[in-house]
Amino acid sequence: MFEARLAQGSIFAKVIEGLRELVTEATWECSGNGITLQAMDSSHVALVSLVLRSDGFETYRCDRNMSLGISLTSMSKVLKMMGKDDTLTIRVNDDSDAIVLSMESQNQEEFAEYELRLMDLDSEHLGIPDTDYSCVVKMPSTKFSRICRDMAILGDSVTICSTKDGVKFGAKGDVGQGSIRLNQSTNVDKEEDAVSIELREAVALTFAVRYLNMFCKAAPLSNQVNLSMSEDTPLMCEFKVGDMGHIRFYLAPKIED
């Protein structure tokens, strides 16, 4: 049997909203350590890797390792029925072909239960090595979302240039061109508003802005986003999920013909 309970069910709903534009179905790997998921988009340009550690759940029980094929589209629809302060329990009974989502209102007066059929999915996994990136930009996730949205107006691609002083996002297309430069924060009251850059080497990489905008669907999970970059290496875009884990998106760069 598998059972995991989250007092703040809305966190799980935000995780699903963060994934479901990039991948519509995925296999969840459940073990005693927690829940992990790795899935690529259909064109093999982007990948998402999710980790939710067991100690981040209010209660967590996983008697044996399980691979659960789940339609994220359907799960998202079910989770929309959850109240914003509801407690969420995810359960898979032994020898069951369904996942049960139970939602309980804070005053314990309302209790809803939905079942979703599990799917048999073929999943391809990539081995992603630990990487020492040349540059890690940390910035407010709302700012990153706004910049990606704005850049998409100008063109299909965004070039991210990072130096020790700042990071510049630039796009050009048929309508014109533009760029936004952020300097490293020197003095901020709140850490979550800061832009900080750890840099070993300056980098300039170009990415399809459409994918960056899909990654930004996970921005409500975290005040800050980390962008880890090295030349000729996929971008890693990370949002923390409270102190229980993270969503990491990987995106292959655009390269010269």
Binding site: V45, L47, H125, L126, D257
Partner: peptide, 13 residues
């Protein structure tokens, strides 16, 4: 510019 694929950088496991 052309779009590269993740499989150009990472191997299947």
């Amino acid at each position: 510019m052309i779009q590269s694929a993740l499989t150009d950088y990472y191997t299947k496991r």
